[in-house]
Computed example of a mutant assay.
Amino acid sequence: MNFHAFPDEVDGKYCLVECLVPVGAGAPPNHHAGETEGFFVLDGQVGFMIDGTETLARKGDFIPIPDGAVHAFQAVGDAPARLLILNSPGNMHEAFFTGIGTVLPNGQTDLPAPSEPNIPAVLQKAEAVGMTILPPA
């Protein structure tokens, strides 16, 4: 993830993140009251589920997530997806993503090797910031 804007840089209005999503990866079903979210697909294809409705998004598509809606996404196809993710006001998402990630050294442009997420730590951080991650169906 590459943070383009943190809420404290834009008068607390939003958080803007660019995200590279490997095929098969994404976010499990989740919801978060008080944070509106939108995804703009820069490259690749992404399958979204929003309140039980499935949508396939391609380069150039914008997918809005209503405040509190249960949603999930996964990169599909034969190449990673690249997304811009806008969260408003964004404080919850900034705390979540910075709390579970590792900052890359200045100047590093290559992604580190993928690793398995620490699921208990992710769930704990989500709960701490007010997100609900739902169990797999």
Rank of each mutant, 00 (worst) to 15 (best):
L86G: 00
G107Y: 07
P135C: 10
P28R: 12
P114T: 07
Q124L: 13
G68I: 07
P117K: 05
V23D: 04
G38N: 07
Y14S: 04
I85P: 00
G99H: 09
P28W: 09
A121P: 12
D67S: 11
L84M: 13
F3K: 01
E9Y: 05
M49N: 10
N2D: 09
G101S: 15
P29H: 03
D78H: 07
T98P: 01
D43L: 01
N30Q: 15
P105T: 05
G47M: 12
L20S: 12
I133R: 04
I119L: 11
P89V: 00
G24Q: 06
L83V: 10
G130L: 12
L123R: 08
G44E: 00
D61P: 05
D67R: 12
I133N: 06
A33V: 07
K13A: 15
H4V: 14
V122W: 15
K13E: 13
Q108F: 02
N106D: 15
T132K: 15
L84P: 05
A25K: 10
P28L: 06
F62V: 13
A128I: 02
L56P: 10
E18D: 01
G107W: 07
I50L: 11
G38F: 01
N87E: 12
L104M: 14
G99A: 09
D61F: 07
E127D: 14
E9L: 05
F3I: 09
D43C: 01
I63L: 06
I119E: 09
T36A: 15
M92D: 01
A81F: 02
M131E: 07
V41R: 07
D8Y: 11
V23A: 01
F97L: 13
P66N: 05
I85T: 08
H4K: 15
A121S: 13
V70W: 00
Q124D: 15
N106H: 14
A5C: 02
A5W: 02
P135E: 06
E116F: 11
G44K: 00
V129L: 00
V46S: 03
A72C: 08
G34K: 02
A79V: 04
A113N: 09
G101F: 15
I100C: 10
